[in-house]
Amino acid sequence: MKPPPFDYHAPRDLGSALSALAEAGTDGKVLAGGQSLIPMLNMRLAAPGHLIDINRLAGLDTVTAGPDGVRVGALARHSRVERSAEVAAAQPLLRQALRQVAHPVIRNRGTVVGSLVHADPAAELPAVLALLGGSVRLARAGERERDVAAGEFFTGPLESAAEPGDLAVSAFFPASPPRSGTAFRELARRHGDYALAGVAAVVSLGEAGEVVRARVACIGVGAVPIVVDVTSAGRPGDWAAAARAVQDRVEPEDDIHATAGYRRHLVGVLAERALGEAAREAADA
């Protein structure tokens, strides 16, 4: 469990980081929090020739929360975003999701943007970004930064739109409209494990308490976070039909921890619970 040889780069500014990445091409990997990459290196599941450590770059650890939403820099650790009152006020789903990401020691080191780029279909943050319709900002040597919408960003299990040479510099999580509520429900075998299945929900209510918009994003039941709009099936106080609609849309698979059938069942239960909780929160908002 020792990594194969690699060249280690520790650039001190964004320009050098981008050129190092450009030079390394497909043989390069970005090291931020390292919570997924380092174990993969140690198990020799990944063997990049160049590791570009971005931890010394200034200005990438910013977190800004405003009425529009939350922008999280590439070096902002999970724990910082989780604990920020401004973030929780602007988009409460982030804190709800982050509390279920692994364990505190991992959250102290792991980064929000790193989790997005890693694109594990069982991870919480990709689902949050997908559900909220957020985006990831990519930088590349010699090019203008570009924003990629969540819908295009997650392309497959552990695959994202970030190409070799790209550095994800930040991500943007939009705020929800007024009279909205959010919830994140998941079930993991052990506290902090990747979930067997999980559901993030946002519900927005109208003046009369009617459902204006209801959407969920499901994790662990497909190649990417699966976003389902259940506005038409949703009734405040009765989300059973919505849950069935979600179950029909997911594509779970068997693995050693749970069968596909159980995951499909579970996603229904979690969707009903998450939607109900989000709707109650919206009603109180």
Partner: peptide, 8 residues
Amino acid sequence: ISPSDLFH
């Protein structure tokens, strides 16, 4: 026994 086992 796991939750998945119990479900089945």
